[in-house]
Structure formats: structure tokens, C-alpha cells
């Protein structure tokens, strides 16, 4: 078993000029001497800039940009579930299976999805188009069951709707 993510061969990535502008905007939300607070939003930004996941060089880079020790960045990136430490497919499909969704048959959503894209929960399709994840409550319980595809919520799901949503993704 490996402690950290396996992929360490990647080169250190870098923010584009426009991403760097966003970093500056993020910094402006916090008092100057509290820049460490920007770590989480900058990690979010890095993830979206660097292909949907954070390699270790990416974490080192973010630590450098924000000005914290790398270990502090590793701690944060591994603590929060939204930071992907492994590559994900073009569409990261996250299905809530917590109680409210489960009561409304999220099991079936999982089954339909797995059949539809031919991958298991936690896996990525061979064409790297989909990564399926089981997640905890996403706060849309009155419209259960639900799933999230990248940033978008899809609620009040039925088997047909799941298939339709997957098919319609560009």
C-alpha cells in the first residue's frame, strides 16, 4: 500500500496568466497576513486548471503560490474529498447514496450508471470519459435521488433520466 498518490513523475505545472489573476482575486478576500486561508480556493482553482486532479507537483506548486509548507498543503488536499489525488475522467459522476437518496432507490441509480458506462463505482472508463464515485449527502435530499456531474446537480433521478443525462453529455 502506498501512502501517497503514485504519480510523482509529473512536471510541476504552472498557472496561466489569467489563472494567476484569479489567484490574486482570491488573495484579496482575506487580510494580507492571512494568506494561508487562500489555500482551499487556490486548490480548487488548480484542480480545474490542471485537468481535474492534483498531482503531487501540483500540490507543491500550490503550496509555493500560497506560501505554506508543502506538508500543510498535503494535509488539506487529503482531508477534503473534493480534491482528486488521482486522474479523473472528463465527467466525474458522483452519486449520493446516503440515507435520503438510498430511501429513494439510489441503488438503482448506481446500477444503471455502472451498466450504462461500463465501469464500477470508484473506477474510470477505459476511454477516460467517466469516473464514477459514490459520495455522501450532497444536500439535495428533497429531490432524491440525485447525482452530480462535474459541477452540475441532477435531481429527482429515475433510471430513464440517468441514461438520458449520460447520453446527452457532450
Amino acid at each position: 500500500m502506498s501512502i501517497m498518490q503514485e504519480d510523482t513523475q509529473q512536471d510541476k505545472p504552472q498557472f496561466s496568466a489569467s489563472a494567476m489573476k484569479q489567484v490574486e482575486e482570491i488573495f484579496s478576500r482575506y487580510p494580507d497576513e492571512r494568506r494561508a486561508s487562500a489555500l482551499m480556493p487556490v486548490l480548487h482553482l488548480a484542480q480545474s486548471e490542471f485537468g481535474g486532479w492534483l498531482s503531487r507537483p501540483a500540490l507543491d506548486y500550490v503550496a509555493e503560490v500560497v506560501g505554506v509548507a508543502p506538508i500543510r498543503c498535503y494535509e488539506v488536499a487529503t482531508f477534503y474529498t473534493m480534491y482528486n489525488l488521482k486522474p479523473v475522467g472528463k465527467y466525474h459522476v458522483q452519486v449520493c447514496t446516503n440515507i435520503a437518496c438510498w430511501l429513494c432507490d439510489s441503488d438503482n441509480v448506481v446500477k444503471v450508471l455502472e451498466d450504462k458506462v461500463q465501469a464500477k463505482m470508484g473506477g474510470t472508463t477505459q476511454d477516460n470519459r467517466f469516473t464514477l464515485s459514490e459520495v455522501e449527502c450532497l444536500g439535495a435530499c428533497i429531490n432524491a435521488p440525485m447525482m452530480q456531474v462535474n459541477d452540475d446537480y441532477y435531481e429527482n433521478l429515475t433510471a430513464d433520466r440517468v441514461a438520458e443525462i449520460i447520453d446527452r453529455l457532450p
Partner: peptide, 10 residues
């Protein structure tokens, strides 16, 4: 006032 987004931790 500013928004600070979490990242998945109940």
C-alpha cells in the same frame, strides 16, 4: 463579505 467554499468535509 466574501464567500469561502469548502471542499467536502461534513
Amino acid at each position: 463579505l466574501a464567500v469561502h467554499r469548502g471542499a467536502g468535509a461534513y
